[in-house]
């Protein structure tokens, strides 16, 4: 069967549905939302949800970079093919996808914006095993406070290196300069941590 006969990602209505969830995630940092189930044929079946995020926000006006644990990144090929976004180096990328790995010290090289225009900065998108707002099985808790959070919010990131979170704190210490972080789980959960949020680690 020809692929064009199969269900495709509807860039009008599907992307609107996904965007409304992304916007909610950024509006209420640390709160976990579910990316809508979209029935479409995805070449990148490995991780449909992160692909959907890319298709919703990326186009030829944006640049992106992928940090993947594989040498031949399927995700990179998928995004180039389906969004026409330009693949760039880490320091120039508007969106940085971190799939099953960590940025570590490379985080110091990414775009943080300038005081005149802090919006010219990167969005970090992590693909994780899971995100939870209960402490079951997590070694530490990420405590969040700031705009979008009524009092305080706790996130639990199982099997996620604590030192990576320390890097987030470090890169966002000079607000309004910094990066905005999106966490997407393999089950389609999404949570965001804008740079305006104060992050603390409780062990």
């Amino acid at each position: 069967m020809n692929k064009t006969d199969d269900k495709i990602f509807d860039i009008v209505h599907d992307s609107q549905k996904v965007f409304s969830i992304i916007l909610k995630a950024f509006s209420f940092p640390g709160r976990i939302f579910k990316i809508p189930e979209i029935d479409f044929l995805c070449d990148y079946e490995l991780q449909k949800y992160i692909a959907v995020f890319g298709l919703t926000l990326l186009d030829f006006e944006t640049t992106f970079h992928v940090i993947d644990d594989s040498t031949d990144s399927l995700f990179k090929k998928y995004i180039i093919k389906n969004s026409q976004a330009e693949y760039s180096g880490l320091s120039d990328a508007d969106f940085i996808f971190v799939i099953n790995t960590y940025l570590s010290d490379s985080i110091n090289n990414i775009k943080k914006g300038s005081l005149i225009d802090p919006s010219k900065s990167a969005v970090l998108v992590y693909l994780l095993e899971n995100i939870a707002d209960t402490s079951k099985g997590s070694e530490y808790t990420v405590k969040l406070s700031g705009p979008g959070i009524k009092e305080k919010k706790y996130l639990h990131l199982n099997n996620f290196k604590e030192c990576e979170i320390k890097k987030w704190i470090s890169v966002n210490k000079e607000f309004p300069l910094g990066v905005d972080i999106v966490l997407i789980s393999k089950n389609g959960e999404i949570a965001a941590i804008p740079r305006s949020i104060k992050i603390e680690i409780n062990t």
């Binding site: 919006s119 969005v123 804008p194 740079r195």
Partner: peptide
Amino acid sequence: IIKAVCIP
């Protein structure tokens, strides 16, 4: 919009 929300 997303950038605007991130930098109130």
